[in-house]
Amino acid sequence: MTDDESPGDGPSTGSVRATYDRIAAHFSKTREYAWPEIETFLDDRSGAVGLDVGCGNGRHTELLAERCERALGVDLSREMLATARERSAERGFDYGLAQADASSLPVRNDRVDIAVFVATLPHLPTRESRVVALDELARVLSREGRALVSAWSTEHDRFDADEGFDTSVEWTLPGGEGVERFYHIYDPDEFRRDIEASGLELVDFEVSSGNCYGTVRPE
């Protein structure tokens, strides 16, 4: 557990990136399939441009590429992007990739018709940076655009808390070495409040498999 946010050894964006750079190859192998909640959100949706923020190995960017004329996956970790590039080449998917920060998206205003922002928001180190990232999502979505935002929740069996909290969760590499990842675990009311505090409006909300899922549109 850590709640120290001092630069360098706290849960900074840099340490989350360094962790994913380190665990990318192994992490990618354990993230083979899309989550069912994301498939449900994408059902019957299509558009010109799809965006996956925190794309990891691209398992959801692939679904966007199938439904949109063009798709883009962005991630903070260069090593994760390398796994996405390899996987998309192997599977014959054609989408763009860029290294980027969710709180300063290099994407044009009103450009995106469908976005997924899955299991990425909880890695941002402060509430301010999380709300800024939600504002960025609002900025890039078109008027009719919709996005799915997900976050690990206090409703998950592994947590015994009613209110949101900061923690670090260990990833175990083959061989047994543990690598820490920063997480903000959201309580459902807090998740809704952060979305309402941003330029997004909640269209639909559910807690499923211990995660909060919000379908959102720009205000």
Binding site: S12, T13, G14, S15, R17, A18, D21, R22, V74, L76, R78, E79, L81, A82, R85, L97, A98, Q99, A100, D101, S104, P106
Partner: peptide
């Protein structure tokens, strides 16, 4: 580099290599 643009804000570009 390697076909992937690095569009991080410049102050994050050199941060915390693995």
């Amino acid at each position: 580099e390697d076909g992937i643009p690095n569009l991080l804000p410049p102050d994050m570009r050199d941060e915390a290599p693995a």
